[in-house]
Design a binder for these strands. Structure first.
Length: 541
RNA sequence: GCCCUCAUAGCUCAACGGAUAGAGUACCGGUCUUCGGAACCGAGGAUGGGGGUUCGAUUCCCUCUGAGGGCACCA
C-alpha cells in the first residue's frame, strides 16, 4: 500500500490534520476540513477552502483567517510534525478568496512516482449485479450503459481492495410471462420476441412434446448462451456468477421458503384472491401483489428471495444496476429490505444500493424516436461493437454520468468515432511507449535530476496528475462516479502531450533519465486508467 | 393526476457549495524537415425562465417551462 498510503493516508490526511490543528490553535472548534486536488496546477498539489468555511464563524475575513492559519501551520510545523513537513511541503500560500494551497517538494513527488500505486485490501464483500437482460433477445444499446458502468465499477472496487463478485441474474423462471410467451413462439403459437436470430435458434431445437413453459425455458437458455458469449467475448465483461432464477430460486424451493417466511411474519394479506405484501408500512407507495389469484407467484417473490440469498452469502454491500424503466422498484426493494432487516451500507444507506441508468433514445434525421423492437428501430450492441470497435463503444458509454439522458444518433456516432477522445488518450500512450522504446538503445545523458525536470511547469503538472491516480480510484469507490475515469484519462493525456511538447526525453544519442522515468510512469498510469474502463492501451496505433 | 431523472458552448459531455464554469468536436487564425502532426498554440462561443438559502449556487430549496421514464395479478 505504499503509494496509496503515502498520498492518502499520509499526505492528504497529514494536511487535513495540520489544518485542523491550526484551526484549534486559533480557538476555532474544527469540524470537517476539505482537502482537494485543485484543477489548476498553479493552485498547488493540494488545496483547502477551510478559511472560507470558517471565516464567518470566527468573524474574520477568509483571507485574514487563511493568513493566520498558514502562520500557525508554519509555527507548529517543526515542533509537531518534525522535519517531515519541510521535506514534503515546499510552499504554502493563501490565494483567491482565501484558499490555502500546498505545494509538494520535488522529493515528495519523486518518491511518490517511484513507489507507484498500491491499495489497502479491505476484503469487504461486495456483490454487483448488472445487465441481467431477459433471455428473450439480444442486447441492444440500452444495455450498454449498465453493462459498461457495472463492469468498470467492479474493476474500480476490486482495485480499491474490495472482494467483488460480479453477478448476472437470468430471468428464466418457467413461471414468468416472458418465458411462457417465448414458449408460445417456440411452439408456433405466438410471435413475441421473434427475430431472424431467434428463429435460427428455434430451428436447432426439437420442441416436440414440450409444453409452453418447458419450450420457453429451453429456448431462453439458447438465447442466454449466445448472450453470455457476446458479453464475455464481444464486450469483455466477466461475470463470476450466472444466477439462474429457475434453478436456484424456483426449483430449489427458495422462493417457497421466502413466501412462507413473509406469511409467518405477518407481512402479507389476502385480497381479491391474491396475496399482497405490506410494503406500504415500510415506506413504499402501495402494496404489490406477491401471488396472483391464479396461484402463480409474481417476479417479486423471486426478487426478494434473490436479494436475501445475496445477503445470506455474506455480502456486506449489494449493488444493482437497473434501467430507468425499473426505477419504480427501487423504493419497493428498499422497503422490503427494511421489512426483512437487511443491513444498511457503511454510510447508513438503504440496501440494495441501486444505480439507475437513464434510457437511451434514438435520433434519426434530427427526429427523436422511441427505440422499439416492434417498429424495428433497435440498435444492437453487437452491431455497434462490430462497426466501431469495443474501445470506442466503451468510451462512448463511459465518459458520461449514468443519469445523463443520452440520445443516440448513428450518424453522429460515425462522425465521432473517428475523432473520439479515446484515440487522443490512446495516442498519448502510444507516443510515450515509442519514446521509451527509443531510449532503450541510448545512453544516459548528464544533468537529469528530477528536481530540475519539474522546474518545467508541464513536467511538474504531469507528475502531480499521475499521483492523483489512487485518489481518483478511492473517490470512485466512494461516490461511484465511474465516468470520472474517462475525464482523468483525458487529463493525463493532455498533460502528457504538454510534457512531450516541452521536454525532450531522447536527444541526440542520449536520454534524460528522470524525464524517461516520468514518461514511463505516465504511460503506465494512462494504461491502468484505460484498463479500468476495459479499454486497451496500444503500444502503437 | 402522482412519483423518479434530466436541461450547461452550434454539437457530445465535465465541474465534493468555491478560485477566470472545463474538455472534445465544429468554425477561424497560427506552429510544421516531428524523441510519432491521430499533435501543439491562439480566438470566438454556455449555466432554460423566475424566486429563495448562502460570504459564495451549474450544484441545495420552491415554482414555471420543456424532455425521458415509471405508476400491472409484466419482469
Amino acid at each position: 500500500m505504499a503509494w496509496y498510503a503515502h498520498f492518502i493516508k499520509e499526505m492528504k490526511e497529514k494536511i487535513e490534520a495540520i489544518v485542523t490543528e491550526a484551526l484549534e490553535a486559533i480557538g476555532v472548534e474544527a469540524g470537517v476540513v476539505h482537502i482537494e486536488r485543485p484543477a489548476d496546477s498553479s493552485h498547488g498539489d493540494y488545496s483547502t477552502n477551510t478559511a472560507l468555511v470558517y471565516g464567518k464563524k470566527t468573524g474574520v475575513s477568509p483571507r485574514e483567517l487563511a493568513g493566520k492559519l498558514v502562520e500557525k501551520i508554519l509555527e507548529s510545523a517543526d515542533s509537531r510534525l518534525g522535519r517531515g513537513l519541510n521535506l514534503e511541503i515546499e510552499k504554502i500560500e493563501v490565494a483567491g478568496a482565501g484558499f490555502i494551497n500546498f505545494f509538494l517538494t520535488s522529493s515528495a513527488l519523486e518518491s511518490a512516482l517511484e513507489k507507484g500505486p498500491s491499495f489497502l485490501k479491505s476484503g469487504e464483500k461486495v456483490n454487483i449485479e448488472f445487465i441481467s437482460t431477459n433471455p428473450t433477445g439480444e442486447l441492444h444499446i440500452g444495455h450498454g450503459r449498465s453493462a459498461f458502468f457495472g463492469d468498470a465499477l467492479a474493476r474500480v472496487l476490486a482495485l480499491a481492495g474490495k472482494d467483488v463478485t460480479r453477478e448476472f441474474y437470468i430471468n428464466d423462471s418457467r413461471e414468468s410471462n416472458q418465458i411462457r410467451e417465448l414458449g408460445k413462439t417456440a411452439l408456433g403459437k405466438g410471435e413475441q420476441y421473434k427475430t431472424p436470430e431467434l428463429e435460427e435458434k428455434m430451428r436447432a431445437i426439437d420442441f416436440t412434446g414440450m409444453d409452453e413453459e418447458t419450450a420457453g425455458v429451453k429456448l431462453a437458455h439458447a438465447v442466454q448462451e449466445s448472450n453470455r458469449k457476446f458479453i464475455e467475448k464481444g464486450l469483455g465483461a466477466h461475470f463470476d456468477v450466472w444466477f439462474s432464477e429457475d434453478k436456484e430460486l424456483r426449483a430449489s424451493g427458495e422462493n417457497g421458503k421466502m413466501l412462507e417466511r413473509l406469511k409467518s411474519q405477518n407481512l402479507t394479506y389476502e385480497k381479491e384472491g391474491a396475496l399482497w405484501l405490506k410494503t406500504s408500512e415500510y415506506g413504499d407507495a402501495e402494496d404489490p401483489v406477491l401471488v396472483r389469484s391464479n396461484g402463480v407467484p409474481t417476479y417479486l417473490v423471486a426478487d426478494i428471495a434473490y436479494h436475501q440469498n445475496k445477503f445470506d452469502r455474506g455480502f456486506k454491500t449489494v449493488i444493482d444496476v437497473w434501467g430507468a424503466d425499473h426505477h419504480g422498484h427501487v423504493k419497493r426493494m428498499q422497503a422490503v429490505g427494511r421489512m426483512l432487516g437487511w443491513p444498511k451500507t457503511q454510510n447508513d444507506a438503504d440496501q440494495p444500493v441501486v444505480f439507475i441508468a437513464q434510457l437511451v433514445s434514438l435520433k434519426e434525421d434530427g427526429v427523436s424516436k422511441k427505440m422499439s423492437k416492434r417498429a424495428g428501430n433497435v440498435i444492437l450492441l453487437r452491431d455497434l461493437v462490430e462497426e466501431f470497435g469495443i474501445d470506442v463503444v466503451r468510451w462512448f458509454f463511459s465518459d458520461r454520468a449514468l443519469n445523463t439522458q443520452m440520445t443516440f444518433d448513428m450518424a453522429i456516432a460515425r462522425e465521432q468515432s473517428e475523432k473520439n477522445p479515446v484515440f487522443y488518450t490512446q495516442y498519448a500512450h502510444a507516443r510515450l511507449a515509442s519514446i521509451a522504446e527509443k531510449c532503450k538503445g541510448l545512453k544516459e545523458g548528464k544533468e537529469t535530476n528530477f528536481a530540475d525536470l519539474i522546474k518545467i511547469p508541464s513536467a511538474r503538472a504531469l507528475a502531480s496528475k499521475i499521483t492523483e491516480f489512487p485518489e481518483v480510484v478511492a473517490e470512485i469507490s466512494r461516490d461511484y462516479n465511474v465516468h470520472a475515469l474517462a475525464g482523468y484519462a483525458t487529463s493525463l493525456a493532455i498533460e502528457a502531450n504538454a510534457f512531450y511538447r516541452d521536454v525532450r526525453v531522447a536527444d541526440g544519442g542520449t536520454f534524460n533519465s528522470s524525464a524517461l522515468a516520468l514518461a514511463i510512469r505516465a504511460k503506465e498510469t494512462i494504461a491502468e486508467t484505460l484498463s479500468l474502463l476495459g479499454i486497451s492501451a496500444p503500444e502503437r496505433m
